[in-house]
Each structure stands twice: as C-alpha cells, then as structure tokens.
Design a protein around this nucleic acid. Structure first.
Lengths: 359, 359
DNA sequence: ATGAAAGCGCTAACAT
DNA sequence: ATGTTAGCGCTTTCAT
C-alpha cells in the first residue's frame, strides 16, 4: 500500500509545473529544449522558476543518463605549489564546460589513491584525472571499463590505453645535469624524495644518461641524498652537512623540486657555504618564488598550469564519439639564474694541470 | 504505453539482486542494515557485489534523501599557498567522514563566486565552505534557507546567522605594526592588494589602531602601496622605487601576505637597499617558505591548516540535530625572524637630539 | 505545443 | 528474514 500519509509538497520541477499550470514535461522542455515551447508559456515558467528560486537537481538528471558535471582529480598533494598550479589549470579548463573538480590528495599512498578512486566512482564523476602513485598497482585500470574515463596526469601512458598529459622528466633531468656538467661540476648531489615515483625515477634516469654520455661514471659523479618530505612523515630536513662531509663532497646540489632547493639554501648559508661560489644549486619546477630567492634559483621549468589545462581538456574530449586516446608530453626548459656557477677552482682540477689529480 | 522496446539489463542493485536470487530490498539491507540480513544471504550478496564490481550510485541514494558526500569549497585562489594549505586542512577533516570537496577559485570575482554557488547548489552538495568576496552582496545568504549549510571560511560571521571559522585579522595587523613601531619605525609602507577584502581591511584597521594607540597619526606614519596581484590581472610588480622616492620614504614594508614579501625582497636588493639594515620587511601568513628566505622573514603566522580543518568540522556538524551556529576565531602570532630591525640611525632622530628634526 | 507516464538506482515502509 | 512497492526529481518517448 502506498504511504499516502505524509502529504509532502512536490519539490523541483513538479512544483514549478503546478504553479505555472503546465505539465512537468513542458517545464523540462523549457529547461532543455526551449525552442519547442511556446514563447509565453516559456516566459511564464521561467518567471515561476525565478520566483521560487528553482535549481535543477543534478542527481536526478544524472539518474536519467545526463553526464555528471563533476570531475575527479587525484593528485599527490594539493598543498604542494606545483600541484596547486596544476589544479588551477584543471579548474580553468573545466569551467569552460561548466564542470567542476573534486580534489583529492594521496600523499603518495596507494591505499589512499584507491580509496578516493572508489569514492569518485560512487559519485559517478564524469571522469578522473590522476597523478597515480603507481599505475600498475592502482585500481584505476578497472575504471574505463566501468565507463569512467581516466586521464593520467603528470604520468606517461606507456603502453596503457588511456589519455595522458605528462612532462618529459627524462629530458628535464638531463637538462639540469648537462647544465651542471657544462659548468664543470664532477661531483653532484641528487636531492630526491624517497619514493619510487615515476616522475622522480625518470629525472634520475635523465641525469644518469647525461653523465654517461659525457663518458663519466654516474657512480663517481652522483651522490644520492634522500629526503623524506614532511607530508610523508619526514622532517623535510636536508642532510647538507652530511652530504658535504662525504669523502668527495659535491660541488652542486641537483634538487628534484624547487621546494627542496628552497630548504637547502638556508642550510648551506648556515654552514657557511656560499651559493653559487662554493656550491651550485639547481631546482625543478620553477615555481613562482624561484626567481625571488637569493640567489635566484636556476631551475627546470615545467608548465604546470598547461599540464592541468590539457589533462582536463583530454578528459572532456573523452565523451566525443570520435575520441581516440592521446598522450601530450610537455617539454621542460632550463632556466638559468644565479644559483649555479662553475665549481670552485680546486675542483676544476681537470683543467688545472698544475694540481695533482686525486684519481 | 511503456517503452518496452530496449531490453536493457538492469544495472546496480537490481542486477545484484537477480544474480544473488534475492530482492532489491535485501540487497539494500546488506548495504545499509547488514544486521538484519541472514549471515549466508549476506555473504552471498557481498560475493556477487565483489564479482560484478558493484559500486553504489550516490546520485540515486541522494534522490531518496541520503546526504551528499560532496562538500563545496569556494576560495579566492586555490593556487595560493595559503589557501592550498587551508584546502588540505579541509580535505583532511572531510576524509574522516568519508566526504570529499569540490574546490573552486573565485579570484575575488563576485560573479564567479555566485556562479560556483549555483553550480554547487545543482549538485546538492552537503554544504559549502566559502571565503566570500563580499558576504553582503553574495548569493550565499540564500542557501541556508534552501537547505544548504554554509560555513564562512576566513571571514568573520559578524551578525550573520552562520557558522564561521576565521582569523583575527585586526589583531594580526596590530601585531605586525606594533613590532615595527617598537623597533622605532615611524614611516611604514603598507603593501596590500587593491581589493576590499575583509581580511585586508581588518589587517589595515589593526595597523591603524596600533599607530593611533601610540599617539601617532596614521596619515603620517602609514604609506599605502597598492599592488594588483597577477591572478587579478595585475603584473604583481611592486613599486618599490616609487615608494622609496616618496617625500618621506618608508623604513619598513608591512606586507599583507608573504608572497608579496617574497616579491619585494629581490626588488629591494636590486635597488641596493639592505634588509633589514636599511628597511625592514614584515610578511603575513608564515607560509612554508618564509623561514627559508634570506633574510628569513618576520611574519604573522596564521594556522591555515587548522582553519580549514575547523571550517570543515563546523560544516559537518551542521547536520546534527542539536546544532547551534558557532564562530571559531583563530589567533595569529608574530614570528620574528631576520627581516626586521630598528630603522637606520638617521631615522631614529627622535632619540638623537644632536640631529635637527625635520618636523 | 503540451500532457501523460515510464523508468533511472536506490531507500524505506510495509507485507509476508 | 525477505519480498514488494512507492516514490525521490528528472528526461524522454508517445499521445493528444
């Protein structure tokens, strides 16, 4: 038996229909096919909608098959300046199509990633942009089959059948390394977060290649200085002294993001090490502040905003019938500023025959 | 007549019910009231759900009255480090309750704010956290009546009947000003974005009060240096030279956010002005990088993460039956570092009787 | 040009 | 313990 009990007034479209003295079908039409509604009927309905402050119910629409206006966005850490910029790029592209983004931060935790993926699935988002911690072990590959388009963000597609917007990190690492090698550095500390993130391994790979192509031995030239970022439970403290007290101390620090570079600058200063005179520092990302440091930071610029914009663009194009998965790779660019210089004379011994080489 | 035409297989719960050989009601129960389902029936249903990769449809649930799991969040600019940190605080609190946030940036544009407000209304979000550009002219006041709770973010509630999580900006401005006045500064440049944002006017008010309480004339002591931030169409360039060539040049720059302070530092350096020897610089926010600048920035710390966390907490509490609107005000804190010092001797003339005062 | 009615996937009341 | 069924607000045939 029907629960005729509670005499709830109808909400939404039905209420508007009643007030305007038309059927719900007509109201629906003024919303979606205004052209097939008589001029005056339409104005009357619109009038009522305004008066009552009617707002379409997206959930109900979605239930009838309308595509959702919300897009999921899973990133490593929204509070990271780089990702925040990416997020803005995404937001801007989505806004063009009246869409909006749910932002999630995984802090590089696979469980968190999968958790959010599921939440986004429940919401039935239009699609998901994801900077996956590990595409191989993530649940993300199950989604396209379930009808939720996925676009990789800042992650190369490799052999995955997905759209992707990514940076050429191998090139980025290479650019940074070549710059340092060109300046004469032969002992370079690599400052990198202790994660197996593809972005980082790629950059490291680029660095190694550059070293090898110079006929040098990466094991000799490179000094790994692992750091645990604060958001991942670490102190974010950078073991500068430790690095400098290595048997063969570095004459340059190559940081895999500008934030790390910003952290290291004061540490070096405190240790009485002048940048770039005593050691050079290279960053990565070229975040807004990089140019405002002293010394202004030499870094590898990544078009963060464009990356986000493009990823969102790819996602929105997934609905189009003729859609083919695509990958867009952005090219990083070396921005030389004041934090790099040739190593101190003592280290450029290869060009100073009068000094006895150590090796 | 029914469109019996397309023999669509039922999706969702119905499909699971069919496969498990039970009714939809039972499936719904294993989802929402597992205790009233027989042990084995439940396991069987759950089994099917796993096999089929079933995921609840939030839209359908919502339509039956379930509260949405998505919360709207309207901020000035997500790519701003301060807000990005606030956003993380929000995300963390929401995650505890399985909720997720849609992030929107208004760039201090009222139209944009209202546009997003409407979009969030359509989505029927659980509630909205908003750093309103102008609560008075915003549509936000209409929402609570329509059933969407609103929590003011970084905006005082004043006489509004809403929850709010905000900072004591008057105090913040006062702290910064008092610090400078205590050091002996008597001519202070106020670096502020050209907007009527409450956060900024409050800080300015705090500064003025501090000046007046010292028996000084704000018009004499304060020099306004308006800046148009990049996101708002400006260059973000700071007219340092212009300020310094004022008839009575400032001996200190009081910036209403650390970003501005970061921008000004290099400009001063280029102009050959030493910080803090020639002029002092005070920031606001204490963003992560503030401590890493050289000189390390003296600034007013705002608990951004907590602000976001608390705002989200207030919002989630809106559903509770005994809910009373509350306002939580956070207290800023002066963090003295290296960018401030007494003004150069020539300016401390009031304490140097041997020099002829100008006034 | 407008109305009537089915159905999207789910929950909640009720019946069995 | 389980099944049945009426909506939730909307779109979409199909009929008028």
């Amino acid at each position: 038996m029907t629960r005729a009990a509670r005499p709830r007034r109808p909400g939404g479209i039905a209420e508007v229909a009643r007030l305007a003295g038309v059927s719900v079908g007509t109201v629906s039409n003024v919303l979606n096919n205004p052209h097939l509604v008589a001029e005056d009927t339409r104005t009357r309905v619109e009038q009522i909608m305004r008066e009552t402050g009617f707002v379409r119910n997206a959930a109900a629409r979605q239930l009838t098959g309308a595509p959702s206006m919300v897009v999921g966005c899973v990133m490593l850490d929204l509070s990271n300046v780089y990702f925040a910029e990416v997020a803005r790029g995404i937001e801007e592209r989505l806004a063009v199509d009246g869409c909006v983004a749910v932002q999630c931060s995984t802090d590089v935790l696979l469980d968190r990633e999968n958790h959010y993926l599921r939440a986004l699935l429940e919401i039935r988002v239009r699609g998901i942009l994801i900077a996956s911690v590990d595409p191989g072990r993530s649940d993300l590959l199950l989604l396209p089959a379930r009808g939720t388009p996925i676009v990789l963000l800042d992650v190369p597609r490799d052999d995955l059948d997905l759209c992707a917007a990514a940076m050429d990190n191998v090139l980025g690492g290479r650019l940074a390394a070549e710059h340092l090698l060109d300046l004469g550095h032969r002992r370079i500390a690599l400052l990198r977060a202790e994660t197996e993130l593809r972005t980082l391994t790629d950059r490291a790979e680029g660095v190694s290649r550059a070293v090898r192509e110079r006929g040098l031995d990466p094991a000799e030239v490179l000094l790994d200085v692992p750091v645990v970022p604060p958001r991942l439970g670490g102190t974010g403290e950078i073991p500068v002294r430790q690095a400098m007290s290595d048997a063969r101390p570095p004459t340059a620090f190559l940081c895999f993001n500008d934030t790390a570079a910003m952290m290291i600058l004061p540490s070096l200063r405190e240790a009485g090490i002048a940048v770039p005179h005593d050691v050079s520092v290279v960053g990565y990302d070229d975040i807004h502040f990089a140019a405002n440091l002293s010394p202004a930071l030499t870094t590898v610029r990544q078009p963060a905003h464009d990356l986000g914009w493009t990823a969102a663009d790819l996602l929105l194009s997934e609905v189009k019938p003729d859609h083919r998965h695509r990958e867009v790779i952005f090219t990083p660019e070396l921005v030389v500023r004041q934090s790099t210089a040739p190593p101190p004379a003592r280290e450029t011994r290869t060009t100073s025959p009068e000094r006895t080489p150590w090796t």
